[in-house]
Design a protein around this nucleic acid. Structure first.
Lengths: 324, 324
DNA sequence: TTGTATGCGTTATCAA
DNA sequence: TTGATAACGCATACAA
């Protein structure tokens, strides 16, 4: 490994001169700086990030924590994040899994973005207390070192339910998310409110876990309910909606968009390839990422941060039809 | 920030005692070790990774480099990687983009896994020359510090083409990948061989870039060709096959699986939701990840590594039918 | 069993 | 404009 010490002796100068030259300080003559630079290149010098970090306490790195890597969802979000961070000379790295949590207190990066249910609120507060800057995308936390960029879950869930109701479907089923999931809680609350506002509407809540399997598992009960007349089903995310459709298609003779009407949430890519096309709630994942990055950068630079929210819109699809 | 120095003074011992105690050396009495440990906990001590790294030159971190984060593909692969690495106390971090390449020479991790076209071969050889351990998944590199886990592209492409030929389709179109992509080159070569083996078969090669847009762009030429009788199209990956199907469905009256027969490669999740179901080449992405992790770990531990290959199988689908 | 002292590669303070 | 030197936090050879 070649260090500045090697460069220094090769150039016949002191290590501090090398350090200054390499970091572009104007205390050094252009000639010596150039000479040192070219010697560094020649020797294939690469700064030691550990040493620098030990001294400067700055990684220029941002960590993003995801619950898992199961695709679909995260591509655009990460793209939005990376783009914004790179613009400001920060690099992005993605982590997942409990083991990796420790990188936050170990100061592996200057800040972190959390979209990861495996973090408990208290854990995050603990990091924030120690001075680590956090942006959370999946919960609300009141702390000077934490900011959030949240989906407008209330608007989205309301749109979804009102879409069903507007089609004349008054028997609403909602397939929920994990107990602990903030997004699921918010959406379900909005569902209840929206249904309550309509006297003749009824609501049945089914458990779910935001994955295909739990959508599939909700199938039997929903098929049963559909026996008593057309039902409008709001799955709190697309993944479950797709699982449910899989069930209905393979295990029953019920027609989606006719006997059972299904709306999802997230507008994942798969949704548009479903037959019939899945009605869902859409929002810009890329913008979500970009905004999160921006918030974190502001915190890192000590600039004031204003609360942001990601707006949503309804995407209609043939998975929902008119009730007769 | 609380360091071992703080613990030492709080415990009334020297820093080396603290270091030994915290690292579980048996040179320390169990009592003092316990006492120090509890003081450390009390103070909320977290080891400084930079300092430790500077000394030990070991991050216990493996970096995975991807061309982009666009989902679908990588979920299972990363899962396989992470599972295997965690088992051996290594952590996984995911990087993407040119900027992040420098983390390799900067020794941000103990080894790296590359599935990223933005690395040039020479660049990787350069890192390997400097002693960095690499496992590459998208090329072949002959270097003591590099190992590869490759798909059996030849078998896969041959399976795909012979599937089409076996259905009586003798007019084969192949939609290629980026010039520089190793997988694309291997697959296309196998396609040519498979077609040449059958005297009455013909092959037309169309350019592609492994994305939906380029599959879509190949649509017009394929529709034209289909005018002269049923054609068998092998898209060198699923992404392009889906793009092509989008074109055929929305821009032509041609029937997929009847007028045009389509096979993809990768068996991404979307493939099974296509209507008709996309025929494709499947392989275990999870195993691919696990094997790559294992190879890297072996290199890190200086154990001998044997070459591995990921086997593939054909998944039939209604996107291919019989020719008449 | 514990303490002292040194060095890992940088940056930064001060003096020259 | 440059150089000597002291940190940064930790691990460890050696001394006690």
């Amino acid at each position: 490994m070649v260090s500045i010490k090697d460069i220094a002796s090769a150039a016949g100068v002191s290590i501090s001169t090398v350090s200054y030259a390499l970091n572009g300080s104007d205390r050094i003559t252009k000639e010596t700086a150039d000479r040192i630079q070219s010697i560094a290149n020649e020797l294939g010098y690469v700064p030691n990030r550990a040493a620098r970090l030990l001294k400067k306490r700055e990684t220029m790195l941002v960590g993003v924590f995801l619950t898992d890597f199961s695709g679909h969802f995260y591509g655009d979000l990460l793209f939005g994040l990376k783009e914004e961070l790179n613009r400001r000379d920060y690099d992005l790295i993605v982590c997942s899994g409990r083991r990796s949590h420790r990188m936050i207190p170990e100061r592996a990066f200057d800040g972190a973005i959390i979209l990861d249910a495996t973090f408990a609120d208290e854990e995050l507060i603990g990091y924030a207390d120690r001075g680590h800057k956090l942006v959370v995308l999946d919960r609300e936390l009141d702390h000077p070192n934490v900011n959030q960029v949240l989906l407008d879950n209330k608007a989205g869930a309301t749109l979804a339910v009102e879409y069903l109701l507007g089609q004349g479907l008054s028997r609403i089923c909602a397939v929920g998310g994990p107990e602990s999931a903030f997004d699921a809680q918010q959406r379900m609350r909005a569902v209840r409110q929206a249904v309550e506002r309509v006297p003749e509407a009824s609501l049945e809540e089914l458990p779910g876990a935001f994955d295909k399997a739990s959508g599939y598992a909700a199938g039997p009960r929903i098929a049963e309910a559909a026996g008593e007349g057309p039902a409008g089903v709001f799955c709190l995310n697309d993944e479950m909606a797709i699982g449910l459709c899989d069930y209905l298609r393979t295990q029953t003779a019920l027609q989606i968009g006719k006997d059972v009407h299904v709306v999802g949430y997230d507008n994942i890519e798969l949704a548009q390839y479903m037959q019939p096309r899945l009605a869902t709630i859409d929002y810009s994942k890329r913008k979500w990422g970009a905004l999160a990055a921006e918030q974190l950068l502001k915190m890192l630079e000590g600039r004031p941060v204003e609360q942001e929210r990601i707006y949503v819109r309804l995407v209609e699809g043939e998975s929902v039809g008119k009730a007769y």
